[in-house]
């Protein structure tokens, strides 16, 4: 009974969003089959496009890894965008100020990005723990501050010589670029970094005593404190770690994608990652394929725009529909489980 229900919901979980997406295409007068074809072509049609899909996959993976830490602690880390930006700013500072060989500069940029993100995440955490500011509002506010900071840097102290434009800073020296393979824009180093960080985060959460106490804090802070856990410290820790990991996404965006600091450096990937983690139901292993799918939809939307004349925001609509229908299904599923009487294990 249990298994059959699970399969049923899995089937529905695939069928419902696919049908809904088809309806969206019909609604905007686009042939659904051609759109599906373009999805695969656009995202995986050539090695170059596959590379570009992976390039989007990297920040999504890193941001999702960051969010799974704060979600485990029971926190909504809306400030993730700001943490990505803070990481990018810190890495850009290193790239601009230090001249050294590539391995040294890149290592320094990664460390700087970690610290920058941790500061931004830590601020949201401190506001929550010490100031009693809900992490959603604190994070949102810090996002605006971070965006403002980037624009200020680009227009002011870090502006290009003779030009004050929001287009971005001067490109970094080539020593501060993540290395790429011939003909591809994606850096294998950043892909390795993202996968490695995800594995490390999952290991931390599931295998270590710190991860266990962090999860206990997230599931039931009251009971966790009865076990002698300093729950405030663990909330703060979750923000520091998440901020650091998000900062790495900023590093790859700056050093592997744009090779300079641009105002939209976070690319909205932080918010997209919130959807990914929600869809994965906080199960880490699902993040890999779901993030890949999201990256593919983002890539495909360029093709939909070019070939079918659809607006590029359609990709976002499809992603949103996917998340909504899965959340609706899981909500319905939770309700249908609740209706059934819970089998009681007797007292012995």
């Amino acid at each position: 009974m249990f298994v059959r229900n699970d399969l049923l919901f899995l089937g529905l979980g695939i069928l419902v969003p696919v049908c809904a997406s088809m309806l969206v295409f019909l609604f905007v007068d686009a042939p659904p089959l051609r759109a599906t074809e373009l999805f695969f072509e656009g995202a995986f049609g050539s090695s170059q496009r596959m590379g570009d899909t992976l390039m989007i996959w990297v920040p999504l993976l890193l941001a999702s890894s960051a969010l799974i830490i704060t979600f485990s602690a029971g926190m909504w880390n809306i400030g993730i965008e700001g943490q990505i930006i803070a990481g990018a700013v810190a890495a850009s500072f290193v790239a601009r100020e230090f001249e050294a060989s590539t391995p040294v500069v890149l290592t320094a940029m990664i460390v700087a990005g970690l610290i920058g993100g941790m500061i931004w995440g830590g601020l949201a955490g401190l506001l929550r723990v010490r100031g009693g500011v809900n992490e959603i509002f604190g994070g949102l506010g810090l996002n605006f501050v971070a965006t403002g900071l980037v624009v200020y840097l680009i227009m002011g102290p870090w502006s290009r010589r003779g030009i004050a434009s929001t287009g971005g800073t001067e490109p970094f020296r080539p020593q501060a670029w993540f290395p790429t393979l011939d003909g591809l824009r994606v850096s294998p180093l950043s892909v390795l970094l993202a996968i490695g960080v995800l594995i490390l985060v999952l290991w931390f959460l599931s295998r270590t005593s710190y991860g266990l106490r962090l999860r206990a804090t997230g599931k039931n802070p009251l009971a966790a404190s009865r076990f002698g856990i300093r729950t405030d410290a663990y909330l703060l820790l979750s923000f520091l770690l998440a901020g650091g990991v998000a900062g790495l996404a900023g590093v790859t965006q700056a050093a592997a994608v744009y090779h300079r600091l641009v105002p939209s450096i976070s690319g909205g990937y932080g918010f997209l990652a919130i959807l990914i983690v929600l869809l994965a139901g906080f199960r880490g292993q699902w993040i890999l394929p779901i993030a890949l799918f999201f990256a593919a939809v983002s890539m495909a939307s360029f093709q939909w725009q070019l070939q079918l004349g659809l607006h590029s925001s359609l990709g976002g609509v499809i992603q949103g529909i996917l998340v909504l229908s899965v959340l609706l299904l899981s909500g319905y599923r939770a309700i249908s489980y609740m209706r059934k009487p819970i089998s009681e294990e007797g007292d012995a």
Partner: peptide
């Protein structure tokens, strides 16, 4: 609610 952490 206060003694045990549900989900663990």
């Amino acid at each position: 609610r206060e003694g045990l952490v549900d989900g663990l």
